[in-house]
C-alpha cells in the first residue's frame, strides 16, 4: 500500500497541470470546467493524503516523544541516534 499511496500522490502532481482543459469554458456542476477540475482535485488530494498517512506514517520518529525536551544549553550534545534516517 505504501507504493500505491506514494504512486497516487506522484500521479496527482502530474495531473495538476491539466492542459486538456486549458481553453475549454464548458460549465460542469455550475462552474467552468477548469475550476471544477481543481476543486474536485482537492477532494481527491485529501483522500490520497489519508492513504499516505495511513500506510506510510514515519512511526520511527515517534521515539522522540519518549525523550524529554532538550534545552538550549544542551542541544549541541543531543542524542538523535535513535531517529532513523529517512
Amino acid at each position: 500500500m505504501k507504493a500505491v499511496a506514494y504512486g497516487l500522490l506522484t500521479l496527482l502532481y502530474v495531473l495538476h497541470t491539466d492542459v486538456w482543459y486549458w481553453d475549454v469554458s464548458r460549465m460542469v456542476l455550475g462552474f467552468p470546467i477548469g475550476f471544477t477540475y481543481h476543486v474536485l482535485g482537492t477532494i481527491v488530494i485529501t483522500g490520497t493524503f489519508w492513504l499516505v498517512v495511513r500506510y506510510t506514517w514515519p512511526i520511527e520518529l515517534e521515539a522522540a516523544e519518549e525523550h524529554g525536551v532538550g534545552t538550549a544549553s544542551n542541544h549541541l550534545d543531543c542524542d538523535l541516534t535513535s531517529v532513523e534516517s529517512p
Binding site: V53, P58, L61, A63, A64, V69, H75, C78, D79
Partner: peptide, 15 residues
C-alpha cells in the same frame, strides 16, 4: 508530512 514531522522530532530532542 516529510519535513514538518522530522523537524518536530529533531526540535523536540535537541530543544
Amino acid at each position: 508530512f516529510f519535513v514538518g514531522t522530522r523537524a518536530w522530532a529533531i526540535g523536540k530532542r535537541c530543544g
